[in-house]
Every structure is written in structure tokens, then in C-alpha cells.
């Protein structure tokens, strides 16, 4: 099976003054069509750096990232990708309708189709009533939903979600989970970065565990849980054990 997302030997460094910090030390992983891939790791592990390279916000020092067989950040790929940033800020003076119109136009979506799609995605994320409310007046949870709405405005084949539950209350988390599962059922490939392991456990098919710029394990969720313990163990326990073993 051909991977949708393929990362090969990806290295990245940050430079602060004269000091170099290795953010990624040669990670490789694959994501396949129709799966939800959970990319998990503690804060500062390299999750957001990996996503930034996938989207072309950062340049790797070595290695490459490919989506649909071509450079992940190519303009052609961006027509097929939806992205939800970890901390989602949108132009506060615009309304959800206006910002979705702006983003939709960048995808060159026909006006009539775009208007219908805006109504549809706002209904999906439960923001129909806030369609014409300035973004500055939306709560954090509503902004996060708007983030998901803008990520799916182009009906993408691949969704890259960076901490999608950030700032959501339990009801919001539940709704976000349902939306993500619904997108999976529609055949979307989802790259899901999180450190909220309970959420990952509930929705992901496979997980990649990253710490200090190194992939510790990439496997199916049921295998990862089953292999390490004979009893049913929470992903959180396994995750903590792996990180501790690696750092020991």
C-alpha cells in the first residue's frame, strides 16, 4: 500500500544565537490512506516541527517529507490538504463567513459552491449561528471550531491537526472527536498530533511516539498496547514507560 504521507530521515535544527538545538534527529514515518495517525509525544518532542516541515513553514536540514508522492509543501498538494494549527488565531475583524470566503477563494472554489460549503462546514462545527459574528467575539472553543472549519473548507483528502483539542471543554472535545471520526468515515487521511493520550487512544488507528526528536515507536494502537503488556493497559502508561526507558 502506497503511503499518503511519507517522512524519510528528517532532520531539523533551530538556531538561537550561536547555539544549535536539534529538533528532529532523523525521523521516518508513513501514514496511509483513510487512517487516523496519532503523532504523540511530550511538549518539545518535535511534533509541531514535523508538521511545520510538512507544510513548508520550516525547512529541514536533511531528509524529506512527501505527500501524494511529491514534496509535501508544494502548491499542488496544498489544494488537497487541510491544516488546523495548535494555537489558532484568525483575523479578529473578520467574521467566520468572511474568513472562510477568503480561504475558500484561495482554493479557487466557485462562489456558489463556496457559499454552500461555508454553510455546510459551519453546520458541521456548530457555528452556524455565529456566521456573522466578528471573530474577536468568539470564545476560545469557538475559535478552535472555526479552525477546523477552515481546515475542511476545501474538502481535503489529508487533514493535519496539531493539538485539535487544545482549549476545548469536555463537550467540545467530544464534538471534535465525533467530527474527526466522521471525516475518517468519509475516507480522509488524518495526521493527528497530540499529547492528550486519552483522545488519541479513542480515535487513532496507528500511533507514532516521538521524544526529543526521535521516533520511539510506530505501530497499530492495538498492537502497541497488546505487545507491551499482556493485560489491557492504557496508552498513557505505555507512553510514560517508553519515554522514561528512553531517557534512562
Amino acid at each position: 500500500m502506497k503511503p499518503v504521507i511519507e517522512i524519510k530521515n528528517l532532520h531539523a535544527e533551530y538556531r538561537v544565537g550561536r547555539e544549535k538545538t536539534v529538533a528532529l534527529g532523523g525521523i521516518s514515518l508513513r501514514t496511509y490512506k483513510g487512517e487516523i495517525f496519532g503523532f504523540i509525544g511530550p511538549n518539545g518532542a518535535g511534533k509541531t516541527t514535523t508538521i511545520n516541515i510538512l507544510l513548508g513553514f520550516m525547512y529541514p536540514t536533511n531528509g524529506n517529507a512527501v505527500i501524494f508522492g511529491e514534496k509535501s509543501s508544494s502548491i499542488r498538494n496544498r489544494f488537497r490538504i487541510g491544516y488546523l494549527p495548535e494555537i489558532a488565531y484568525y483575523y479578529p475583524f473578520l467574521t467566520p463567513f468572511k474568513i472562510l470566503t477568503m480561504y475558500g477563494k484561495l482554493f479557487r472554489i466557485n462562489k456558489t459552491i463556496l457559499n454552500n460549503r461555508i454553510d455546510s462546514v459551519l453546520a458541521t462545527v456548530g457555528l452556524t449561528e455565529k456566521k456573522n459574528t466578528p471573530i474577536r467575539n468568539l470564545s476560545k472553543g469557538m475559535s478552535q471550531r472555526l479552525g477546523l472549519a477552515q481546515a475542511i473548507i476545501n474538502d481535503p483528502e489529508v487533514l493535519i491537526l496539531d493539538e485539535p483539542n487544545s482549549g476545548l471543554d469536555p463537550i467540545g472535545k467530544r464534538e471534535m472527536r465525533d467530527i474527526i471520526l466522521d471525516l475518517k468515515n468519509k475516507g480522509k487521511t488524518i495526521f493527528f498530533s497530540s499529547h492528550q493520550l486519552s483522545e488519541v487512544e479513542l480515535i487513532c488507528d496507528r500511533v507514532g511516539i516521538i521524544d526529543r526528536g526521535q521516533i520511539l515507536k510506530t505501530e497499530k494502537l492495538d498492537q502497541i498496547v497488546g505487545k507491551i503488556d499482556t493485560k489491557q493497559t492504557l496508552l498513557e502508561d505505555i507512553f510514560i514507560r517508553m519515554i522514561k526507558d528512553k531517557r534512562a
Binding site: 499542488r76 496544498r78 488565531y89
Partner: peptide, 14 residues
């Protein structure tokens, strides 16, 4: 600074 550039640059925009 406001991080509005991230969702924007993820779109098909050179």
C-alpha cells in the same frame, strides 16, 4: 506575531 500567517500559508498561496 498574531500567528494568522500559519493557516494562511497552509493554503495554495505562494
Amino acid at each position: 506575531n498574531s500567528r494568522t500567517i500559519y493557516p494562511l500559508m497552509a493554503k495554495p498561496l505562494k
